[in-house]
Design a protein around this nucleic acid. Sequence first.
RNA 1: GGCCCCAUCGUCUAGUGGCCCAGGACGCUUGGUUCUCAACCAAGAAACACCGGUUCAACUCCGGUUGGGGCCGCCA
Length: 483
Amino acid sequence: MSIAEAKSKEIRVRIAPSPTGFLHVGTARAALFNYLFAKHESGKFILRIEDTDLERSSPKFEKDIIESLKWLGIAWDEGPSRQSDRIEIYTKYLKTLLKENKAYYCFCSEEELEAVRQDQLSRGLAPRYNGKCRSLTETEIKKRLTEGESAIIRFKTHGEKVSFNDLIRGKIEFDTSLIGDFTIAKDLTTPLYNFAVVVDDFEMKISHIIRGEDHIPNTPKQILIQQALGLPQPQYAHLPLILGPDRSKLSKRHAAVSVANYREEGYLPEALINFMVFLGWNPGTDQEIYSLTALSQEFTLEKVQKSGAVFNLKRLDYLNGFYIRQKPLDELTELCRPYLPASPAGGPKAEKDFLKKVVGLHQERLKKLSEITELADFFFQDKLNYDKELLRWKDADDQKMAESLDNLDNLLSEISERNWAKENLEKVLMARAEKIKDRGYLLWPLRVALAGKKASAGPIEIAAILGKEKTLTRLKEARALIV
RNA sequence: GGCCCCAUCGUCUAGUGGCCCAGGACGCUUGGUUCUCAACCAAGAAACACCGGUUCAACUCCGGUUGGGGCCGCCA
């Protein structure tokens, strides 16, 4: 094999998002599959920003796409390149097509086109261009163009059949007579999607196009353009779609769709990666937890599913909880910090120590980082607000409750600040609790007095973190609720 | 409506003709642990859309039906 041959066989894939919105989970998953495929095949993964639609594109979204991809750990080898920086290239190819009479100017107005479309639709036909401007003479075109009449560039189809072998679905065939002469550019310097992708994929030597199933109908158009330009045909692999609970394409009305949303909610990139990759792919074994590196070793297109996959938030939550539980406490504390109030004085060291205890206490209860806010709020409040009835354990009457609270107060008052640690507190409190048989009479009111809610971490652990002073204060406040 | 794609538990899926009266995971239910919640452990309910063919044998192959989805832009 010559060097040239070896080079031409290089695996090169790309993700080509358009900056018209925040990075969508569907796009992120496509990026992931491309990335994994490239890694598995020792190829290159390229990021290309498709911003030919200047109206809808925004630098804000481009920034989000780049940041979200980075956050997920999906690293690209080349790019990001931007279509708006490559206009001359498209113009060059456009001129070739025009000159060779493979594309032509169309002067039909949008209203006119829409009317034709509606008519065809109502008659149950495939809507397609009627070919009105297909054979305008060169002089007429020139004349109308110089007169400033608005025009668009169409690609000339010939009603042939186009087929390609999809790596995931096998042979797919289209009848281009049903497609008609489609648009490829608004003018010489404004290419449209189907045209720009073909040019870019060729220029960037893309070997495999791995993208969503929603692009299947675009494929024959792109192949036609390739053929007209004499370009090689890349391999295609169309991924199943991510679906909402109603099994239609996942959209905003179903759930949050941008990676940024999930990041803000406190999902970990590891969880999101692991979740997304199993939407339409599986290793064929029972292993369910994978790192990005492990995935790139396992990933093959043969294992990709053909049918759409419903986005199951419960499973994402489960995975996220799993990864949160795996996190080293130090790291998790930093991840949780944005979701917690700034702690009172004591310096950064003391604050970090305190936060670590608080986070550690809730680590196994967290499904997403943002939940720490509510779970641990009582550590940051001066005065708790809860109903007196919450203090009542089972059928305990007021007298019994008061007794329990007094007992707790007495017991805990005797423990010195120095010995105020979980082990000691446990020793003292559990000894007493055991005597009562039903520990709840002692522990339930303690938990409510300290946390102010019906579900929380253990009262002894809370007391240990809260410290003697605050613990006793809260106990007295609880006692005051009972007359 | 036209074209195209798809079809195993509620969900993600294993299964490439016999190993499957279908396996795993999430979720759900029940029990255990337990002051509550979570975590953890154990058990359980839960699926091959339908009809024909091919074959000694079909969840697996073929055809059809039904159902679902995608696309039909001077968006990508």
